[in-house]
Simulated assay, not measured.
Amino acid sequence: MIGGSTSCNELMQAITNNYSKGEVIYSSLGSQAGINGYENKSISAGFVSKELTSEDFGGRTPKSIKRTSNVSDLVKNPKPNESISISFGKDALLIIYKAPKWWDSQLDNYLSFYTKSDSDTDWLSKIYKGDMSWEVLAHKIQQKHELKSINVPDTSTSFITYTRESGSGTRDAFSELTKANNLQKANVANSNNLMVQGVSANYGSIGYISYSFNNKITKKSGLHAAAINDVVLGNDQLGDRQHIYKIDNMKGLAIDIDFTNEDAIAGKKGVHYEFTRDFTILFGPNSKSINELLIFISWFINFDSIPFSPNAKKVYDEAGIVPICNIQIWD
């Protein structure tokens, strides 16, 4: 059995269902549980959706290696406590929200959060601290883009904030990307699905999800995805799930058919959606099931010299995950 990150779950369920060389069961446990399960040998491989650090390995440091010409080379002459991690997919994080009923739809076309924020644009951190209301945010958008025709009520509507559970890779990635570390007051959702349910159920809510749940952002749900550095990944609410949208200072949000969502997540062609994190598998070369595990890994990870399974590639495409292959040895 393998398991770990709940954000990896949808992708890994599809991968294991399409794998025909043996039965592989993925258990959705959470990133920290994936690490713990690997270490205590209750699972043969752990999956995480956050950056691994030396703290996760008792102070051991990683050594990056080039893509191997033979996956079995990874387990030759291993050290007793050696661990191997392979980042195999790049995922995006989406900031989702359901604005109050008074919110003008024009504001949706200009709302953007920024990864390199200063004191005037550090909005997400202030929202999660409880230091910003929806009205203040509306006024800031209005001032930034000179939207004079929008009427903002003279009230103070608090944000209903949602975060993931402690130990979640998605939560760690969100905090790292936004510097929003004051999450104690936020409602806790234990999965991406529960995050979607919580935010969509309440006007004035905000949260974050994995891009693999982008199909939940629909007109019926009332959810919107905010721009990051003026770039929004296409979704059903906007009308196109394949191409990105950009904010123009004068015209607002507009589709850019020259760039797909995958281009932006991968940072190709000069466009970059900067809220991304890696999906990573963690395993040991001394595992009893290492031979079966290596066959499975070589099927769904895009090693240069090994033909990438068309069925696996199709699963990545449908999930919106960009295949990568970054290998590290921890000893």
Rank of each mutant, 00 (worst) to 15 (best):
D73P: 04
K76R: 14
K50N: 03
W134M: 07
S125H: 12
H139Q: 09
W134V: 13
A99L: 05
Y110G: 00
N77Y: 05
I84T: 03
S54D: 01
G46Q: 14
S69H: 10
D104G: 11
G89W: 08
K66G: 08
K140I: 06
W102V: 02
W102D: 07
G89M: 07
K63W: 05
P100L: 04
L93M: 15
L137R: 06
S133Q: 15
G130N: 04
K66D: 15
I127A: 03
D56P: 15
T115W: 02
I86H: 07
T61G: 04
T68Q: 08
K79L: 12
R60T: 05
L137S: 06
P80V: 05
S117C: 08
G89N: 00
L147A: 00
E51S: 12
L107V: 04
K79N: 01
S83L: 01
P62T: 02
D120Q: 15
S87C: 03
A45E: 12
L107N: 01
S49K: 01
F47G: 01
V75H: 07
V136A: 11
S72T: 08
L52W: 02
K76G: 12
Y110V: 00
I141A: 06
D56C: 11
K66V: 13
W102K: 07
P78W: 09
G58H: 00
Y128L: 03
D73M: 09
W123P: 02
H139P: 04
F47I: 14
F88G: 04
I141Y: 00
Y128T: 14
Y110W: 04
K144W: 01
E146S: 06
W103T: 01
W134C: 08
D131T: 06
D73H: 10
I127L: 14
K126N: 15
K90Q: 15
G58W: 01
Q106E: 04
N70W: 00
W102S: 13
I95A: 12
L93P: 14
Y128G: 07
P100R: 09
K66F: 04
I96F: 07
I86C: 07
T53A: 10
L147W: 03
A92Q: 02
S49D: 06
L147E: 00
I127C: 07
E135N: 13
D131I: 07
N70M: 07
A138H: 09
G130C: 15
D91P: 00
L137D: 12
L147I: 01
I65L: 06
